[in-house]
Design a protein around this nucleic acid. Sequence first.
DNA 1: TTTTATTTATTTATCAATAAATAAATGTCA
DNA 2: TGACATTTATTTATTGATAAATAAATAAAA
Lengths: 170, 170
Amino acid sequence: MAPREDKKEIIIENAVAVFAEKGYYKATTAMVAKAAGVTQPYVFHFFKNKEELFKAVIDRAFGRIYDTFSEVQAPANKLMETMGRAFEQIVQTHRDEVLMVMQAHAIAEEGIREHVKNLFLTIFDSLTLKFENAGLPNAKQTASHFVGTGLLITVAEVLDLPQLTNKVDH
Amino acid sequence: MAPREDKKEIIIENAVAVFAEKGYYKATTAMVAKAAGVTQPYVFHFFKNKEELFKAVIDRAFGRIYDTFSEVQAPANKLMETMGRAFEQIVQTHRDEVLMVMQAHAIAEEGIREHVKNLFLTIFDSLTLKFENAGLPNAKQTASHFVGTGLLITVAEVLDLPQLTNKVDH
DNA sequence: TTTTATTTATTTATCAATAAATAAATGTCA
DNA sequence: TGACATTTATTTATTGATAAATAAATAAAA
């Protein structure tokens, strides 16, 4: 038998894919279970309820984006461009997680909305700080522009509209 | 008794509010009916199903944004700023509709996604054309920046994070 | 009196969540 | 070492709730 933590990990990984494709409400715990190769009630052995499962998944998605941005190192005049490329990298390698981040704010569950709000703000603040530390002027406006562009790229992904991101500048 | 078209109108208006607050999946047709002052099954007299009701609502929301942008007239050097103010105006006067536009892309129903995709693209293209006609260079990039900023403003509204939009430039 | 407007009553379907049961693994000590 | 005991992993079966959608009935107006 697989150790407990392994199964939990497997469930989260598969839940990312299911939630990203179906969205929070159309994704059923049965689908997640099936994808992970366990039975539906067993999911509740690891997560108190569907909402907690989703939070675990969204933590992972935001965490990867946060970590990626944190690790970027570049001279001030190349920082924006390098960060932009880093984001595009994540969009390619972990598309599902990026889609989830985009969809997360549209979930009406109060607990989830609060959670997403905090995660979103954490990323925004860390970006602002990074731009500040790099000595860029108007760090906050720069962060706004950066995040706005990221949102557009993500919406274009969600709606399958590659035209929108052909010539976005960084 | 109220004429048919009036009731349909009333249902749409109330559906905007309900969908904006609850989101597509948590909003029930019973809620919409109650808000509109009719019975739940009667909603189906005007709309084939919940999806068609939602499409009618989303058409209205996108339509208002589209019309607003179309009507803006300003000299090239003030166009961006004027457009930005026009959008902020809509956010204030028709907050629910703007929230709906933001949430619409996160709906997994294929029919809705396709519908939203077309509406989104229509607005983006009309913006690009407007910037082109005004003689602005890089009309497409300008439109991207404009829409990206709009998305950020809207996400900030959805998540109730006014900090994010304090100093967004236009 | 025949449409039009609208309600009440019901059906069908779907899910999250719980409870109870089973099976496999691990440890203990004679 | 091998039988017994205990824990850990996992499944089957079921419930309770909710919501969309349909059909039949009623009331008002033209």
